[in-house]
Write a protein that binds this DNA or RNA. Sequence first.
DNA 1: CCCTGATTCGC
DNA 2: GCGAATCAGG
Length: 110
Amino acid sequence: MDWTDERVALLKGMWTNGYTARQIAEKLGGVTRNAVIGKAHRLGLSSRPTQVKRHTPLPIPHVVERHCQWPIGHPGTDEFHFCGKNAVPGKPYCESHCNVAYRRKDDNAA
DNA sequence: CCCTGATTCGC
DNA sequence: GCGAATCAGG
């Protein structure tokens, strides 16, 4: 399994958003949680509080959302805030964060 | 015991 | 650099 940009992006995206290595591994498919953790570690990530509490409000796709719900920083801290940029109609994120969250392998627009 | 992530070892 | 194995913590 070659770690392509989109796979790494998905890995980092899910990892950063509090997904467990198993969820990410299962999502990517063909990789074990060890591979995900190992890759994440190599990427410069690693430190992850076990089974991060659901205080990271993994943004739920809402109907008619107009502002990007992408969580920035840590909840409970002064740094925690949402992106708040104008999201695309029907999607919880702005175009850039939507791209990070829903990035597809065939989304490559040269 | 189960789960998690982190680190280390071998390929 | 990749993945599995192993270790450590919850």
